[in-house]
Design a protein around this nucleic acid. Structure first.
Length: 140
DNA sequence: GCCAACGTTGGC
DNA sequence: GCCAACGTTGGC
């Protein structure tokens, strides 16, 4: 299993919006960036990810599970753009802020720190464990 | 609201 | 195929 990070502006699509979809989940649509799309093409059903709020909050607020592999993005006719479906899994008891991530040993190399603009990012197993722990989430 | 970083576009 | 110009994103 691989790990990822999905970034969203809460004013556009928030963790509450995602949770409201329940187990049915929702398309992670609207991505118009090749790197981010390529990440989604690599995802498999059952992969896990962090849900990150950018802009106002700047924190990891929950975890999600990939429930459908890459398929055409329904919000465009442009065949270049694909997306996966994800569902909310766990709400983080403690939101993990960007500030914390930047100052926690072992997380210096996170894509979130290195290339903050990429909206869908890979997360290493080590990073996954550290951030889960900071979020107050149990080990898998 | 500003600005740096980055990706994309289009002219040559 | 290069590179300048432009648009977008996101942290501050």
């Amino acid at each position: 299993m691989r790990y990822w990070l999905f970034k969203s502006e809460p004013s556009t699509w928030s963790w509450d919006d995602q949770r409201a979809k329940g187990d049915a989940g929702e398309e992670w649509d609207g991505v118009r960036n090749y790197q981010a799309r390529n990440m989604m093409r690599e995802m498999k059903i059952g992969d896990r990810g962090f849900f990150y709020h950018s802009q106002t909050e700047k924190a990891v607020v929950g975890t999600v599970e990939v429930i459908a592999e890459a398929h055409p993005d329904s919000t465009t006719d442009d065949a270049r753009w694909e997306c996966v479906d994800i569902k909310a899994l766990e709400t983080a008891p403690e939101a993990v802020t960007l500030d914390t991530i930047k100052t926690t040993p072992g997380l210096e190399e996170m894509v979130l720190v290195k290339n903050s603009r990429l909206s869908v990012q890979p997360v290493t197993e080590e990073e996954w464990r550290i951030v889960r722990s900071l979020a107050g989430l149990s080990e898998d």
